[in-house]
Amino acid sequence: MPGIDECLLEAMRLPGARGAALVDWTSGLALGTVGEAPGGDHEAAAAEAAELARMAAEHGTFTARGEDRPPVEDVIVSNADSYHLLRFVDTSFDSSVFLHLWLGRAEGNLALARIRLGEMAARLVLG
């Protein structure tokens, strides 16, 4: 059963991974970081990614229908140089965290990363 660090290290094994973090999106606090930080500062990156995650999760426009499913699974941002993949971790306890993976655009495989990150998020809290 992986802990936070093992989960982040596993994410870093994905092709093109530059950095990964586990962020509490209510507070913007990075609970764990590994690798490079977008912009060079993990703390600032976590706070800004948390803003984006909060916007997606809190506004009905982006959320799934139905009471018993997570409102949002992923937030994906692409730019000319890289991809950012935010994966919400669905927990049975009170928590509001997401995995943030930063992928180099040339080497990264967004589809693969999305599937793998979802599996990692589930294993993190389910064992």
Binding site: M1, D24, L31, F93
Partner: peptide, 18 residues
């Protein structure tokens, strides 16, 4: 004892600590 996954426990632990 394996009753809780490490990740879940670490998350709750850090939440409670901060």
């Amino acid at each position: 004892s394996g009753l809780l996954p490490a990740g879940a426990l670490e998350l709750c632990h850090l939440d409670a600590l901060y």
